[in-house]
Design a protein around this nucleic acid. Sequence first.
DNA 1: TAAATAAGTTTATAATATAAACCAAACTTA
DNA 2: TAAGTTTGGTTTATATTATAAACTTATTTA
Lengths: 94, 94
Amino acid sequence: MFKPLDPLLHSELRLAIMSLLISTDEAEFPFIKEQTGATAGNLSVQIDKLSAAGYIEVEKTFKGKRPCTICRITPAGQQAFEAYVEALKSYLQI
Amino acid sequence: MFKPLDPLLHSELRLAIMSLLISTDEAEFPFIKEQTGATAGNLSVQIDKLSAAGYIEVEKTFKGKRPCTICRITPAGQQAFEAYVEALKSYLQI
DNA sequence: TAAATAAGTTTATAATATAAACCAAACTTA
DNA sequence: TAAGTTTGGTTTATATTATAAACTTATTTA
């Protein structure tokens, strides 16, 4: 009847992060922060969770002399996102 | 960019309850319990929240001698559900 | 060189979801 | 008819989660 919703994706901020990465496939921390309107702290935590789950990969480099955190979605992340969308449809009849 | 998601609806069980009531427009507690697979306790709590928000109305009657709790969606609930679906679309590009 | 800004991380708190425990009434059956 | 079981829930306790506040480190800029 109702398919279970991946709790990792069923979170407003994490879903927004994944949604961004699905379409841009690479994004820097400040960009994600701006687009989602999240605080840096919250964003940092949620990125860690997605990264720990293998849904995104995080590269920490430098841009000039400043640190620069780049996020990319992984194949596992793409798959999980698509599965989540499918599951959601069982609730929304769309 | 990303529309905020009504936290009352962005919950797996409450969304399932609303989804059922959108299509059946009247359902008894045991039926919702069976369809959602929720425990009675959890269901009771979540029904209370939806009811307190005015998204559903709860009628407590009797069926023969046994208590019978009937739930219906309200116009405010319908509207909130539709708004939630619209907001979700900003995350899912569907 | 002092203050402000950038880019994060860590930690504390508040909110939430969930199950476990509980309750009351009605049925079943020994 | 007394004991146990089932139905239909509610209340409460716990564990998880989300979030912001506080902090760190390095870099600009006045």
